[in-house]
Design a protein around this nucleic acid. Structure first.
Ligand SMILES: Nc1ncnc2c1ncn2[C@@H]1O[C@H](COP(=O)(O)OP(=O)(O)OP(=O)(O)O)[C@@H](O)[C@H]1O
Length: 663
DNA sequence: GTCCCCAAGCCTCGC
DNA sequence: GCTTGGGGAC
């Protein structure tokens, strides 16, 4: 076992302790992910455990892909190995087991935008005021209930109206044969809890289970893991409570702090701490720990640094965001020329997506190659959503929401009144919308004219034709054919007029995405088909990075949330202002909100290996209006001697500046 | 049935 | 500031 020599004794112990519950609780950069990866290899290569007996859960799809690649490189084979996010695992599980709940295996996954639409229609059905029961709030409450594994009856104890909304929402989803994101965890748990034979099957299957970033799991995810590990009880989780930054999604770092209590059964729980940080310079680390030690609710850790020396943290302020981005662009340029640090070993970590746009513009102008990670989803664009609705309906004919989106796109002369009559007809006969089309001709109670009925029939034929085509040929090829058939470009020209060329380009991007998906599937020994494509889009699990080397030499621009688990030679954290980090919305939430923001800052800082730049602006545009900004209070929590403030000026210089300003 | 205009809210973070 | 979609005009 040559490869074990890459590990320190504590890491080695974590890797070779395979039986019983194991918790690795350790700070940033201490090699937790490395432990998980090596542990997988150890199980496969040394103990010869069949791949299908192991489940590894990562936080993001990117992390899953990276781990898969490393395992593939080291063992040559990744077939049958389950490395996925909780949600991707949920999809996998439900494909096999969702029948017991009365759903079909070909279910749709609704994004939160879709669920808002659904909630909107439910409020209308229940004749409720959307002002009094805002769909956003309802969606949030339903999500919270599902995280806590509560059904409508249990969640709506105080508020019967909410109970009814939640109940109807869940019923509608089932009729549409669709699930929301929370269902991907909630439903598997409910199935495992109520069907002991299924629970036995799955918990016997997974002899070893590992979870990375355990501090960001929520209650339902913890229960899911407990149910799956019940039989063998070989469960290993790693994490760092200081890096819990997904509370808004229900994550609760008490899961990791209570791991021992949760999992001790006959076997004792082993806890291993890793103290050595291999990533960052002592200066960066001292600053990050000084900051995080201001949090009251945390498990204190001691750290030692492996690296020596290093330069101070660079701090600077600019008037506005553009200038901030320009200075960063120049630093990256210099870093590459003078420091020989390649583009992709720099990273810009933003608090919000909106910040990213400025960097995109400035980098483009200054010819700095960049790539945006995450951010505004391509799939949220209206024109793309329409295209996806077609695919969803083709895949899942029960998906009425998608049907409504596209039955008159491109315009085929089916208007609101016609549609209203059609819907009533379908409801009266208890049919799905697509299913109702066939009955129109035989039944007399639809109140629709012959030509109108024919329009519906043509639409259904189109859907059915492509259902077949997608089974026969490659997704990307069928897409091209399909877009031609519905004369999409023509429609875009009609709707978008001058903007059409730009929108038409989006069609091309969509097809490129499909091609990318196909090569991604191939790389992972997966079958590329419509089902996989839809899943891939719903879970956003494509690495935006494609294979050509070009892309690997670009500066990533992303949010701090997306940077979790990554590391870079040089890190820039722009927008270090009060109101941005900590964000206004979090400040409003009180102390817990601020502590979460402090963890965010800690995560961002600890991504840096050698150089760290922190910057803030004095004016920032918020919803179009310029507002004055002051430096983040977190800045005061970083010891001054670790920081090189470029703007540190003498009194005289300040005076001179002021004079200049008013001259 | 379709087009077009204007009020209103927006994305903090994302599987 | 900009998108979006509801509601009225054609
Ligand atoms: N024993 C070791 N010797 C040398 N380098 C190591 C060792 N262990 C880990 N590293 C390196 O330290 C870096 C951080 O490791 P890793 O990403 O696994 O840490 P982590 O604890 O998961 O970090 P984080 O919690 O911040 O995501 C990696 O570059 C890794 O290769």
């Amino acid at each position: 076992m040559q490869f074990l020599n890459d590990l320190n004794p504590y890491q080695k112990e974590a890797v070779t302790t395979t039986e019983g519950p194991l918790l690795v609780l350790a700070g940033a950069g201490s090699g937790k992910t490395k432990v998980i990866t090596y542990r997988l290899i150890y199980l496969l290569k040394k103990l010869h455990i069949p791949a299908k007996r192991i489940l590894a859960v990562t936080f993001t799809n990117k992390a899953a892909n990276e781990m898969r690649e490393r395992i593939k490189a080291l063992t040559g084979n990744i077939k049958d190995l389950s490395i996925s996010t909780f949600h991707a695992f949920g999809v996998h599980f439900l494909k096999e087991e969702i029948k017991v709940l009365g759903y079909m295996p070909k279910f749709s996954i609704y994004s939160d935008k879709d669920t808002l639409e659904l909630l909107h229609s439910i409020l209308i059905d229940l004749k409720l005021d959307a002002e009094k029961y805002p769909p956003r709030l309802m969606a949030y409450l339903i999500s919270k209930a599902k995280n806590k594994l509560l059904f409508p009856e249990q969640a709506g104890l105080e508020d019967p109206v909410f109970r009814d909304i939640y109940r109807l929402y869940q019923e509608q989803l089932r009729v549409l044969n669709a699930v929301d994101f929370d269902d991907l965890i909630f439903l598997p748990v409910k199935i495992l809890q109520s069907h002991s034979e299924i629970q036995q099957k799955w918990s016997q299957r997974f002899q070893y289970i590992m979870v990375d970033e355990y501090q960001d799991t929520n209650h339902s995810q913890y229960i899911l893991i407990r149910l799956l590990s019940q039989f063998h009880n070989n469960i290993c989780v790693v994490g760092d409570d200081d890096q819990s930054i997904y509370a808004f999604r229900g994550a609760d770092f008490h899961n990791i702090l209570s791991f021992e209590k949760h999992f001790k059964k006959d076997d004792p729980v082993k806890i291993i701490t890793l103290k050595i940080n291999y990533r960052s310079t002592p200066i960066i680390l001292e600053a990050a720990y000084a900051l995080i030690s201001h949090n009251s609710k945390r498990h204190a850790k001691s750290v030692e640094t492996f690296l020596k020396d290093g330069e101070k943290i660079n701090l600077f302020e600019t008037m506005e965001a553009r200038e901030e981005a320009e200075i960063i662009a120049d630093e990256i340029f210099n870093g590459r020329i003078e420091g020989k640090v390649p583009y992709h070993d720099h990273a810009v970590l933003c608090r919000t997506n909106t910040q990213m746009r400025t960097f995109e513009e400035v980098f483009r102008q200054k010819n700095i190659p960049y790539r945006l990670i995450g951010g505004f989803s391509f799939f949220d664009r209206k024109e793309v959503k329409d295209l996806i609705a077609y695919l969803k309906l083709i895949y899942n004919p029960l998906d009425n929401l998608s049907f409504l989106r596209i039955v008159n796109f491109p315009k085929r002369g089916i208007g609101d009144t016609t549609l209203e009559k059609f819907k009533n007809f379908a409801f009266a006969h208890d049919l799905s919308f697509l299913g109702a089309v066939d009955s129109l001709a035989h039944k007399t109670d639809s109140d629709l004219s012959k030509p109108l009925i024919h329009k519906f029939e043509l639409f259904k034929e189109l859907i059915e034709k492509y259902e077949k085509r997608f089974q026969e040929s490659k997704v990307s090829e069928v897409l091209v054919e399909f877009f031609q058939e519905i004369e999409l470009e023509k429609e875009f020209e009609r709707i978008y007029k001058d903007e059409a060329p730009f929108r038409i380009k989006v069609i091309g991007d969509f097809i490129d995405y499909a091609k990318n998906y196909e090569s991604y599937a191939k790389k992972n020994d997966e079958l590329a088909n419509l089902e996989g494509f839809l899943k891939n889009m719903s879970l956003l699990n494509q690495d935006t990075k494609d294979d050509d080397e070009e892309t690997n030499h670009k500066v990533p621009i992303m949010t701090i949330h997306a940077s979790k688990g990554l590391e870079f030679h040089t890190v820039f954290i722009p927008g270090f202002e009060e109101g941005n980090i900590p964000h206004d919305r979090s400040i409003k939430e009180g102390p817990a909100g601020i502590e979460e923001e402090r963890r965010l800052a800690y995560v961002a800082m600890t991504r840096a290996k050698k150089r760290l730049f922190i910057s803030h602006v004095s004016m920032r545009k918020i919803f179009g209006t310029e507002t004055e900004r002051i430096p983040s209070k977190f800045l005061k929590e970083i010891p001054k001697h670790l920081v090189a403030d470029r703007d540190e000026k003498t009194e005289d210089e300040h005076l001179a500046d002021l004079k200049k300003m008013f001259a």
